[in-house]
Amino acid sequence: MGKADFLSPKAIANRIKSKGLQKLRWYCQMCQKQCRDENGFKCHCMSESHQKQLLLASENPQQFMDYFSEEFRNEFLELLKRRFGTKRVHNNIVYNEYISHREHVHMNATQWETLTDFTKWLGREGVCKVDETPKGWYIQYIDRDPETIKRQEELEKKKKQDLDDEERIAKFIEEQVKRGKGEVEPETPVYTELNRQNEEELVAFNLSKAASTSGASRYFLNSSSSLSSSLSSNALKSAALSGAVKRKDPVQSQSKEKKKKSALDEIIEMEEKKKKTEITDYWLQPDIVVKIVTKKLGDGYHKKKAVVKELVDKYTAIVKLIDSGDKLKLDQTHLETVIPAPGKKVLVLNGGYKGHYGLLESVKEKSFSATIVIDSGPLKGRKVEGLPYEHFSKVA
């Protein structure tokens, strides 16, 4: 029989079925492909693309399991936080809502075998409060977001302040009621006689010799008398200005400027050293040319050049072969950078100049490094020498 027509009832029924959630045992997590029945799943397991993904996973299975476990944990906790907040809820309710999404990560691809094991792990790690009841396991999310904690503290502080205000008002009303009933006598002010002690107390003013024009260095005045008129206004001005006005030394100011310049130079040198040491363990970037170095995919793909089209995560990318146009999902350990001819455009993938475009000037084969010139951004025109081969690649 020929293939069913696009608008035939059978084709429409097949499309409707493919949109819904299918059985989990017919889902391939490695290829992220859902099959509708056992025969389809069997055919998929025998396909060439599935076998290639299994070969890649067999090289480092723990890495793939850790990746799927992290994705499952993050998505589960995100749903728990967004949907239920900090309320106590049955773990099976959250899990059923999580698996209703068609593209979710299945638990059989993670390090936890059952939902109970995952719930116990959340309790041991302190992510959630868990307790076992006759009806099953219950979980309660612990929100450790600094903004949430700050918001809760502000609410508690406001509640406490409101309670203090209410208590103060209640106490005031109670006193007014007692005063109205005559139980509390009004307070009468007590007047006392004003007595001055130490009538002969002296106030001393000390003036420097440079500020004094009359030759006197110290005056003793009675606290009840006024200042002596013999101290002229010029003497007061000179006393206020003495020690405050200093002549600037040009040699000293020049030495300070030199110190500032030297400190600035030291900061620039420290920033340059910091840039050279900022190296990460991932380097994949979109729109760069790479070379496939793994032999697990066969001779048809070994040493072939491809272009990075999309990043799945920091360490995995979808590449498209330049010759055949085939698309593959590969880890960065199966790829290496491509060094173009001098004068061609490159992208810095690692180090302090990461993300900058430049032109390849020369290649040093003995030290496996190259010299490039930055041609974009605020660092345009800067020459970077001794850049390792693995820290830059040709731009597609």
Rank of each mutant, 00 (worst) to 15 (best):
residue 11 A to W: 07
residue 12 I to H: 07
residue 17 K to M: 12
residue 18 S to H: 07
residue 22 Q to N: 06
residue 26 W to R: 11
residue 30 M to G: 11
residue 30 M to S: 00
residue 38 E to M: 12
residue 45 C to F: 02
residue 51 Q to P: 02
residue 58 S to A: 15
residue 61 P to D: 01
residue 62 Q to I: 12
residue 68 F to R: 10
residue 76 F to M: 12
residue 77 L to D: 05
residue 79 L to A: 06
residue 81 K to R: 13
residue 85 G to W: 07
residue 87 K to C: 02
residue 87 K to L: 08
residue 88 R to V: 12
residue 88 R to S: 15
residue 89 V to K: 12
residue 89 V to Y: 03
residue 96 N to A: 15
residue 99 I to H: 05
residue 99 I to E: 04
residue 100 S to L: 11
residue 112 W to C: 00
residue 115 L to E: 01
residue 126 G to R: 09
residue 127 V to G: 00
residue 140 Q to S: 05
residue 141 Y to Q: 09
residue 141 Y to R: 06
residue 145 D to H: 05
residue 149 I to Y: 08
residue 153 E to F: 05
residue 154 E to K: 15
residue 159 K to F: 01
residue 166 E to N: 06
residue 167 E to N: 04
residue 179 R to I: 08
residue 180 G to T: 09
residue 183 E to W: 07
residue 186 P to G: 10
residue 186 P to D: 15
residue 196 R to N: 14
residue 202 L to W: 11
residue 202 L to Y: 14
residue 206 N to H: 01
residue 206 N to D: 12
residue 206 N to S: 01
residue 210 A to Y: 06
residue 211 A to L: 10
residue 216 A to N: 15
residue 221 L to I: 14
residue 225 S to V: 13
residue 227 L to V: 13
residue 230 S to Q: 14
residue 231 L to W: 01
residue 237 K to Y: 06
residue 239 A to C: 10
residue 248 K to F: 11
residue 249 D to L: 03
residue 252 Q to V: 00
residue 252 Q to A: 14
residue 252 Q to D: 05
residue 264 L to F: 08
residue 266 E to Y: 07
residue 268 I to G: 08
residue 269 E to I: 03
residue 271 E to P: 08
residue 281 D to L: 06
residue 282 Y to I: 01
residue 284 L to G: 05
residue 285 Q to C: 07
residue 292 I to G: 01
residue 299 D to H: 10
residue 301 Y to E: 03
residue 303 K to V: 00
residue 312 V to D: 15
residue 333 T to A: 14
residue 336 E to V: 09
residue 339 I to M: 04
residue 351 G to Q: 05
residue 353 Y to G: 04
residue 359 L to H: 07
residue 361 E to L: 06
residue 363 V to G: 02
residue 370 A to F: 00
residue 376 S to E: 15
residue 382 R to L: 09
residue 386 G to E: 15
residue 386 G to W: 12
residue 387 L to T: 04
residue 395 V to M: 08
